[in-house]
Amino acid sequence: MNLYLFQVVNGIGLGMIYFLISVGLSIIFGLLNFVNFAHGAFYLLGAYLSYTAVSITGNYWLALIIAPLCIAFFAWVCERTLIKRVYHLPHMYQILVTLGVALIIQELCISIWGPIGKSISPPDSLKGVIAIGEFYYPQYRLFVIAFAAVVALLVWYLLDKTKFGALVRAGSEDAETVSLLGTHTHRLFSITFALGVGLAGLAGVLAAPIKGIHPFVGPEVLGIAFVVVVIGGMGSFTGALVGGLLVGIVQSVMSTLWPQGASLMIYAAMALVILVRPYGLFGRA
Rank of each mutant, 00 (worst) to 15 (best):
I105T: 01
P259H: 10
H91L: 12
L153E: 10
S111V: 08
T183E: 05
V247A: 04
V155W: 01
S236V: 06
H39D: 06
T183P: 11
G204R: 00
L5I: 12
S119Y: 15
V155R: 03
Y279L: 02
Q106E: 09
G283H: 07
L206R: 01
Y157H: 13
L199N: 02
E134W: 13
L89R: 14
A67M: 01
C78R: 02
Q106G: 12
M92P: 02
L64A: 10
V54L: 08
L64D: 04
A47G: 15
G15H: 01
G204Q: 00
V144Q: 05
Q106Y: 00
S255Y: 00
I17H: 11
P90E: 12
A148F: 13
A53D: 07
I17Y: 01
L264C: 04
Y48T: 01
L206W: 08
S190D: 09
Q260T: 13
D174M: 07
G244W: 02
L5V: 11
I65P: 00
S179Y: 11
F73D: 09
I28T: 14
Q7R: 02
V150E: 07
Q260N: 14
H184I: 04
R277L: 09
Y51T: 08
Q251S: 07
L167Y: 15
L199I: 03
G261N: 13
A148R: 10
F216D: 13
D124M: 12
L264K: 05
F216S: 11
V155P: 01
G46R: 00
G244K: 11
I274D: 08
S50L: 07
S255H: 11
F19M: 03
I112N: 07
Y87S: 06
F216N: 14
L3A: 12
L257M: 13
A166L: 15
T256P: 04
L49A: 06
V273N: 05
G232Q: 06
I12G: 00
I116W: 11
D160E: 14
V155L: 11
T183I: 10
S50W: 00
A269L: 15
W113P: 05
F135C: 02
W113G: 00
A166S: 13
G128F: 03
L241T: 01
Q94N: 14
Y51E: 06
A148G: 06
I12Q: 03
N2D: 09
H88R: 12
Q251K: 13
F237A: 01
A67C: 09
M234V: 14
P123V: 03
Q106H: 11
L32W: 10
A152G: 06
G248M: 09
L281E: 04
K163V: 14
A207R: 05
V178H: 06
F34W: 03
T256Q: 09
R141A: 10
I12M: 02
I145G: 03
M234S: 02
G100E: 07
I105A: 08
Q106W: 07
Q251T: 03
Q260K: 13
R169K: 15
G128M: 03
P209W: 00
V150C: 08
S252V: 04
I224F: 04
T185A: 01
A53I: 14
V23C: 05
C109I: 15
N36R: 09
T185G: 03
Y267P: 03
I191C: 04
Y48R: 13
W76A: 12
L281D: 10
T177I: 15
T52Q: 11
V242E: 08
